[in-house]
Simulated scan of single mutants.
Amino acid sequence: MDLLQLRYYQAVARYEHISRAAEELRVAQPSLSRAIARLEAELGTPLFDRQGRRIRLNQYGAMFLRHVDRALSELDDGRRAVREGRDTGLGRVGVASETLLTITHLLGSFRAAYPRADVRLFQSNAEEMGRQLRAREVDFCVASQPLTGTNLESVELAREEVLLAVPPGHRLDGRESVTIPELADEPFVTTRRGNWQRALLDRLFAAEGLTPQLSCEGDEPGASQDMISAGLGIGFIPAMSRQVGTDSHVPVAWVRVDAPDCHRVVTLVWNRESYLSEAALKFREFTTSKPFMAHRLPHLRR
């Protein structure tokens, strides 16, 4: 078997459809069919169950595909290592985060320390992060909720309390704490499903048998405080935002939430089977070498 044959098999196994795989590979269907037949002959067993023009990966095909995926991935990683070492010196590091504000200063500090590193940043929700790690589109995810999947490793970077932010003059302005049932009829500014703010909101309300009332759903958690200040609703904001302080145009009042585990946990997640460039290894070391908040504190707004 040769490398091209394995690429052909991987595509056919993914689509379970000869014509679709042929279209992606830009080869003739008869040539692709013959390549798969030669591979099966060499292995001594069919890899697909065939019913007319339909094909389905069988147990031997699925078993072989796992090894093919690993082998081709290793070769792709080797090609990437050579290319990045030649072109940029330290290579490339790709990082995904639910909100860019979480890692802006971290990446700025890293770039200052390692100017030869090629840094790529992506904004993704939790589901997209898991897919990006599995597909090796990014090296790391800075996640505010657990990412599930095989071969994923993580290290906790920070754990912080989440507070309730309300507009100035709101009925809860001046309260020291509040329970979830007291918020049952309040309109919430939050993010769409898949982001940590929404996951926390839904979890805390579900624990009380309640469903939150929503006034605004967005894709950028960092914009929530501005909308709350404008009177569009109330919302959950990390305590770090209170420590940062706010400019005069985004004032809010802060109230503690009397609910179990009203926290945000920030983790660095990576795929342990993925190739990591020198830049990626430096990034992991840089990110975990001191408290995560220390990367932000010098830049806090006054």
Score class of each variant (00 low, 15 high):
residue 206 A to N: 06
residue 207 A to T: 07
residue 208 E to L: 04
residue 208 E to M: 03
residue 208 E to F: 10
residue 208 E to I: 10
residue 208 E to S: 06
residue 209 G to F: 00
residue 210 L to E: 04
residue 210 L to Y: 04
residue 210 L to T: 05
residue 210 L to V: 07
residue 211 T to W: 07
residue 211 T to D: 06
residue 212 P to Y: 00
residue 212 P to C: 05
residue 213 Q to H: 11
residue 214 L to P: 04
residue 214 L to D: 14
residue 215 S to R: 02
residue 215 S to M: 14
residue 215 S to H: 07
residue 215 S to T: 07
residue 216 C to V: 14
residue 216 C to H: 15
residue 216 C to N: 14
residue 217 E to R: 15
residue 217 E to N: 14
residue 217 E to F: 07
residue 217 E to T: 02
residue 217 E to G: 03
residue 217 E to D: 04
residue 218 G to N: 08
residue 218 G to Y: 03
residue 218 G to D: 10
residue 220 E to C: 10
residue 220 E to A: 15
residue 220 E to Q: 13
residue 221 P to D: 03
residue 221 P to Y: 11
residue 221 P to N: 12
residue 221 P to I: 02
residue 221 P to T: 02
residue 223 A to S: 10
residue 223 A to L: 06
residue 223 A to Q: 12
residue 223 A to D: 10
residue 223 A to P: 05
residue 224 S to C: 14
residue 224 S to Y: 11
residue 224 S to Q: 14
residue 224 S to H: 10
residue 225 Q to C: 09
residue 225 Q to I: 15
residue 225 Q to V: 13
residue 225 Q to D: 08
residue 225 Q to F: 09
residue 226 D to N: 10
residue 226 D to K: 14
residue 227 M to H: 11
residue 227 M to S: 04
residue 227 M to P: 12
residue 227 M to K: 13
residue 227 M to N: 07
residue 227 M to W: 14
residue 227 M to A: 04
residue 227 M to V: 12
residue 227 M to C: 10
residue 228 I to A: 00
residue 228 I to K: 00
residue 229 S to H: 02
residue 229 S to Q: 02
residue 229 S to I: 03
residue 229 S to E: 05
residue 229 S to V: 04
residue 229 S to P: 02
residue 229 S to N: 07
residue 230 A to L: 09
residue 230 A to E: 07
residue 231 G to R: 02
residue 231 G to N: 07
residue 231 G to Y: 01
residue 231 G to A: 05
residue 231 G to T: 06
residue 231 G to D: 07
residue 231 G to L: 06
residue 232 L to F: 12
residue 232 L to E: 09
residue 232 L to Q: 07
residue 233 G to P: 00
residue 233 G to Q: 01
residue 234 I to P: 00
residue 235 G to S: 08
residue 235 G to A: 08
residue 235 G to E: 02
residue 236 F to S: 00
residue 236 F to T: 03
residue 237 I to T: 00
residue 237 I to V: 15
residue 237 I to Y: 03
residue 238 P to N: 11
residue 238 P to Y: 03
residue 238 P to Q: 03
residue 239 A to W: 01
residue 239 A to Q: 04
residue 239 A to T: 08
residue 240 M to N: 04
residue 240 M to V: 15
residue 240 M to P: 11
residue 240 M to Y: 05
residue 241 S to Y: 15
residue 241 S to K: 13
residue 242 R to A: 04
residue 242 R to V: 01
residue 243 Q to M: 11
residue 243 Q to S: 08
residue 244 V to A: 12
residue 244 V to H: 10
residue 244 V to M: 13
residue 244 V to W: 12
residue 245 G to N: 06
residue 245 G to W: 00
residue 246 T to L: 11
residue 246 T to V: 14
residue 246 T to Q: 15
residue 246 T to W: 05
residue 246 T to C: 09
residue 247 D to T: 13
residue 247 D to W: 14
residue 247 D to E: 15
residue 248 S to H: 12
residue 248 S to G: 08
residue 248 S to D: 08
residue 249 H to C: 06
residue 249 H to G: 05
residue 249 H to N: 08
residue 249 H to S: 07
residue 251 P to I: 07
residue 251 P to W: 09
residue 251 P to N: 09
residue 251 P to R: 11
residue 251 P to D: 09
